[in-house]
Computed example of a mutant assay.
Amino acid sequence: MADGMQPIDDKAQETGVRPLTSALKTLDLLDHLGRSSQPVRLALLARELGVARATIYQRLVTLIAAGWVEQTPEGHFRLTLRAARLAQAATEQAGLGIRTLPVLEALTAETGEAASLAAMEGDEPCILQRVEPKGVLRIEMRVGATMSLTESASGRVLLAFAEPERRHRLASGVDPALLEQVRLTGHAISSGRSIDGVLAAAVPVFDHRGVCIAALSLVAPVQRFAPDGWIVPLRAAAARLGDILKGRSA
């Protein structure tokens, strides 16, 4: 590491320090809440996580005390805006925050469609930045939302350009010819099965090492889907994003 400190994973192995199991379980609940678009009832959380209601409630109380979760007047539980602030900080620290916004805005202005920037969060594609067009039918997908790795255009790009070992692990059941086609053409089209009536096209965004770290996509209702006119502006915008990641001007 640049400051000479040993990576935590290596140091933990040497010293025998183990992660706090209770903290991991509480963070798992936080992550689960983040996957829902609506406030969630205690009973549903317990059922979905397979944990006793009393245990889930104790973890919720902990998260409420820490300012991460709040309870609605109806008794449901939801994330506070602290999670949004953390998400913004994470994208900024990864170099994929506000500096990428003008590129997506320009792409949306040029094509008239919604533009999204996604990257892998664990084993799922997660939307890091999104710009919606004005005055047209909108496809509601929020920053922080996850997508199908095998059905979405962004997921297919991120999977096709992943490191071989990771691709092999995640691509179980996926036609290898499909991923090879994505690598050969440099873009992917969604299956149309994730969201009815909606299609998307995506291209990879490469960092200074030539590693695909994100996928840039355009999404629209089927009746407006026009990939032949999208690929060129998508690639140009992806190149500008790559320049930002390399420390150049957009």
Results as ranks from 00 to 15, higher is better:
V131E: 07
A118T: 06
R130S: 13
A106H: 10
T111W: 05
E124D: 12
P164S: 03
A54N: 13
R156S: 08
T146D: 07
V40R: 07
G135V: 07
F161E: 02
F161P: 06
R41C: 01
S154W: 03
E151F: 11
Q88W: 02
T72P: 06
G144F: 00
P125L: 09
E163N: 12
T72C: 06
G95C: 06
T91V: 09
L49G: 03
A90L: 15
T91S: 15
A52G: 09
R130I: 11
R82L: 13
P39R: 08
L96A: 04
V51Q: 09
L137Q: 15
R166D: 05
T150E: 06
V103L: 04
T72F: 08
V103Q: 01
G122A: 10
S116F: 03
H76E: 12
A114D: 04
G67H: 10
E113S: 10
L107T: 03
Q93S: 09
E70L: 07
P73C: 08
V40I: 14
A109E: 14
M147D: 03
L159V: 04
Q38L: 05
L63E: 05
L96H: 00
L149Q: 05
M141S: 09
L81W: 04
L81T: 13
L49K: 04
A90K: 07
P164Q: 01
G50R: 11
P102I: 01
A160F: 10
P39Y: 04
P73N: 08
G155I: 02
P125V: 05
L44C: 01
R156F: 02
L159G: 01
L101Q: 12
I98D: 15
L101I: 10
V61A: 12
E70V: 08
T62Y: 01
L81Q: 14
E105N: 02
I56V: 13
Q71Y: 03
A153R: 04
E105A: 11
G50T: 13
S154H: 00
A84W: 08
V61K: 14
G122V: 10
T146E: 05
E165N: 13
A43E: 13
R41G: 09
L101C: 07
L86R: 11
A43K: 14
A109S: 15
V103S: 02
E121L: 11
R53F: 06
E48T: 15
R85D: 12
T150V: 11
A119I: 08
L128M: 11
Q38D: 08
E163L: 10
A65E: 14
K134T: 14
P125S: 08
F77H: 10
L42W: 05
L45K: 01
V51S: 05
G67Y: 07
G97H: 06
Q71W: 01
T111I: 08
R85V: 15
E110H: 10
L49S: 05
A94V: 04
A43N: 14
V136N: 11
L49W: 00
L107V: 07
M147W: 04
L96E: 01
V51N: 02
L45W: 02
F161I: 11
G97N: 05
A94S: 12
Q58R: 15
L45V: 12
T55V: 15
M120I: 14
R130L: 12
